[in-house]
């Protein structure tokens, strides 16, 4: 049982490493955000589950569940907010991109009505 949990933890840590590598390697902000969000979310979930399987006798599954729920709910929202901010701050997509519907629709003036 302990070995099983340890292996799951190892897989999770590899996803975390890939998240860091993706943040380093990708060509522009949006692609960095893609890897940074997905890989770190699944990586941390697997890391936490693996640790709690390996030490199941401590009786603390509730707190681990709370941490996982908060991560699943807050992590995509923060990266969504960052992506929107990057777009409105005028950061261009990489030159390899094919289309940009958001720019064509011109939402710039819609937001500033307040």
């Amino acid at each position: 049982m302990e070995i099983f949990g340890a292996v799951i933890t190892l897989i999770g840590s590899i996803f975390l490493l890939l998240g860091g590598l993706g943040i380093l390697r990708m060509p522009d902000v949006y692609n960095r955000m893609q890897t940074g969000t997905k890989a770190t979310t699944l990586g941390s979930i697997l890391f936490l589950i693996g640790i709690s399987i390996g030490h199941y006798e401590c009786g603390c599954l509730g707190k681990i569940a709370i941490i996982i729920l908060f991560i699943i709910f807050t992590n995509p929202i923060s990266s969504n907010t960052l992506a929107r901010a990057a777009h409105f701050a005028g950061i261009k997509l990489t030159s390899r991109s094919v289309k940009d519907d958001l720019k064509e629709d011109d939402l710039e003036n819609k937001g500033e009505e307040k």
């Binding site: 709910f73 807050t74 929202i77 969504n80 907010t81 929107r84 409105f88 937001g111 500033e112 009505e113 307040k114």
Partner: peptide, 17 residues
Amino acid sequence: LKTRRSSELLQTASQFL
């Protein structure tokens, strides 16, 4: 000063959180 409204997603999620 004109400020940009936040996105609808953030508003709903912050009410929840």
